[in-house]
Amino acid sequence: MFAEPWQAQAFALAVTLSGQGHFTWKEWAGALAGELTAAEARGESDDGSRYYHHWVAALERLVTEKGLSDAPVLEERKAAWADAYRHTPHGKPVVLGRPD
């Protein structure tokens, strides 16, 4: 059903945020449809395999539009995770060494 764990995580985030009223499902469907249309306009072949990529883009867009977070914070957090993976010895759980 989910090809990779991140797809399941992204799926659960959208369902949970909507369930808690951070956005309606109609808003969600609109955001996702917008990403799919944009991908088609870019001429990306859409055989459904990149569906969850579009899902994540829609999620980022709604999360920032709704003020739940903003792009620089997400970008910084992404870099922090990449860094954490690079510096965590194999076999150890990867944790963010955030100094706050």
């Binding site: 991140w6 995580q9 992204a10 985030l13 945020l17 994540v56 999620l59 980022e60 999360v63 739940l68 977070s69 914070v73 997400l74 970008e75 957090r77 992404k78 922090a80 995770w81 963010l96």
Partner: peptide, 9 residues
């Protein structure tokens, strides 16, 4: 990107 979203939220 998904890890960033999840951990921030």
């Amino acid at each position: 990107r998904v890890k960033a979203l999840e951990s921030v939220l």
